[in-house]
Amino acid sequence: MRTLRQTAQMLRKELLTEWRQRSRVSGIFWFALATVLMVAFSTPESTILPRIAGGTLWLGLLLASTRSLDQSYAVEHEHGAMEGLLLWPVEPVAVFYGKALANTAVLVGVALALLPLLVGIYDAPIHGSLPMLFLTVLLGCGALAAPGTLYGLITSQARGSSVLLPLLLFPLVVPALLAVSNATTKIFEGDPMNQAPSWIALVAAFDAVHWSLSAVLYGRIQED
């Protein structure tokens, strides 16, 4: 109960600070959009664009997530707030869940803003079910945010963090990335074989593992 209340408070704080610096949050969106556009430019034939739309969305979100995580921790370290959190009567688990939920929310926001543009630019009509697409987006963003929140705490305190975060995060989220890209592509193209649900199940499993494991390990990192 106490943990739940603290998580809610942490989430409130995160969303409040992100709202205050919304120009920086929108920067994350533009970054993701730029990535998506660059992929389109580097593709020789526009006929294959619809087929790679799903993967490109997640590539953009993956790259954007590193920016958003960097910023999320820059705020904490600026005036020692992270140390303040450690010495405040707040459980590390609550700090983790609050931050991870907020990071998920930012990514979901970016994804939802990106989707209509993607449909336009990549000429990828959505044949599959829209609720399932939203579920995929939600689970996928969560899969990026949970390990990202843990690794963000590590790398934000180390030198050369801008290189280190992608290097630690990218290999870890490969399974999630494969799964969400496939699910998204299937939903875009229509899914006669009904393959998307099993991909979504894989992301859900990934989420379950990392949302629990990272939360346990977070306290160890914070304490050090």
């Binding site: 390990p147 630690l168 494991l213």
Partner: peptide, 29 residues
């Protein structure tokens, strides 16, 4: 040294946990 040990232990565990998941996902993929 203390930080290095804790941090790399955490990263090693996550990397280790990820091995079977990656294998399954790539196999399906």
């Amino acid at each position: 040294p203390d930080r290095r040990a804790t941090w790399s232990a955490v990263a090693t565990i996550l990397a280790g946990v990820n091995v079977p998941v990656t294998y399954m996902s790539v196999k399906w993929w």
